[in-house]
Design a protein around this nucleic acid. Structure first.
Lengths: 249, 249
DNA sequence: AATTATTTTGCAATATACTGCAAATTTGCA
DNA sequence: TGCAAATTTGCAGTATATTGCAAAATAATT
């Protein structure tokens, strides 16, 4: 039997059942499981299916591999979250805004955390709800379905009514010369408002966002107290940021 | 069985029921609870669901302790929702506040609805998200885990910034002499603020709430434009309400 | 504070995947 | 066709991953 013939059968089977196992295919094709495994290895490389333990599934059907295997908990974001949690040790009130890094941070909080979280990020609410000791204050405004955050004039105004110990700022471009920039105006405005009402501002940024810029200026690096990245704090790529009076973690 | 197969089943189940328990899934999938727990841990990390004690819930969906979710759609609430939807035909801006009746109403909206919903009810957001034509504005404030609504000074202030055509008022005690009363002060205050900023106020009340009172006065019946109950509109139990200039549906 | 339920952790058993190798098969070429 | 090189295949041994169990830790309830 031709190898290509097997490929076809495998793909057809996959299409019909949405999944295939090495065991079943080996039997059906009368070859060893190793052969099937190697076939699927090839099909996987060409993207026609996704190899998983025990067999394969169709490329679109895999929720995990789709979000890139580990989902939102990438190694980098986890590293950032672990550093950030340290800063929340003796804190009473925290601002948190949008982005998956903030989401990972929220899930990483110690179960017995007891402080107040003020956020415009609706996605955080179900997560925060699992922490019984945390008080939740929502910043209202125009709800953005994509980012799941409330961003508008109102949001800024409301932010001004509170005073936080620390502000955990999520997704944004960080540049050693330009400073912090945001992709949408309103989001930038909200970030400004949150900074203004917080004693301390911490920017969480994976290193892909470093030295990039967006369109709307939020602040200069001088206004940032701490920068947390997924790099080692002595990494040379961070050198450009050391001139500023900024803590790098 | 492939692990991914389990993932799919778990997510499908979650989508259908809004909640899953380790116990039920273990039985259904014929694996140990530990395995299910580990699966859900992974799905949680990928952001596809939120792990909670005993099981998991949808990430954006109702974070309410999931035991309460059964039987939200009672016959009575459905009847109320159907009547209420009629009032939203030519409306541009709607206030909605808390309560499961409002949730049912929201789920009952026509799929092509196009108006603006202003709400302090976080539980509505994931539901409203399925209506692409609806603009969502969130009223912020202190988040109450039980009612899943934002209720505080801030909420009232923010409500005052908007002007709605109609206000769909949820859970509260309705008494033919005392009027509308609320169980908690802040909730009552928010209701007052919403009434003030709306052209029309509609009270949705299942008949168990009729002729009962809570502690905090919201308004008299004169201030209510429409009362919707799950009774026939000519039911004699509603007679006590007919003296007022109020529409009864 | 005590009790109960749930979750986490470490562990052993099992299942699956990978590696190198030799046999079998196919391919390229005269 | 005949023969050598290259490729494919199956196998055995080893490495890795998954699973279920039980004990310990934690969280919820009374």
């Amino acid at each position: 039997m031709l190898k290509e013939e097997r490929f076809e059968i495998i793909l057809k089977e996959l299409k019909a059942a949405n999944q295939v196992t090495f065991e079943a295919l080996a039997k059906g094709l009368s070859v060893s499981e190793d052969t099937v495994r190697r076939d699927i290895e090839l099909l996987n490389k060409s993207g026609l299916l996704v190899k998983v333990r025990g067999g394969a599934i169709s490329p679109a059907k895999n929720p995990l591999s789709f979000h890139d295997r580990e989902g939102i908990y990438t190694e980098g974001k986890n590293a950032i979250a672990l550093k950030a949690v340290q800063l929340l040790k003796n804190v009473r009130t925290v601002f948190m805004d949008g982005g998956t890094t903030i989401q990972v941070l929220t899930s990483t909080l110690p179960k017995d955390a007891t402080f107040r979280v003020i956020t415009n990020n609706v996605a955080l609410i179900p997560i925060l709800n699992t922490y019984k000791g945390i008080e939740i204050i929502v910043l209202g405004g125009h709800y953005n379905r994509i980012t799941q955050t409330n961003v508008s004039q109102q949001t800024c105004a409301e932010a001004g009514m509170y005073q936080a110990d620390i502000y955990m700022m999520g997704v944004c471009a960080v540049h050693s010369e330009v400073g912090i920039t945001a992709a949408v105006l309103e989001d930038g405005e909200v970030k400004k408002a949150l900074m203004k009402s917080s004693r301390k501002t911490v920017v969480l940024s994976n290193f892909e966002k470093l030295e990039t810029t967006d369109f709307f200026k939020v602040c200069g690096l001088d206004d940032v107290d701490t920068l947390i990245t997924d790099l080692q704090s002595d990494d040379k790529r961070l050198d450009a940021f050391r001139h500023f009076d900024i803590e790098i973690l």
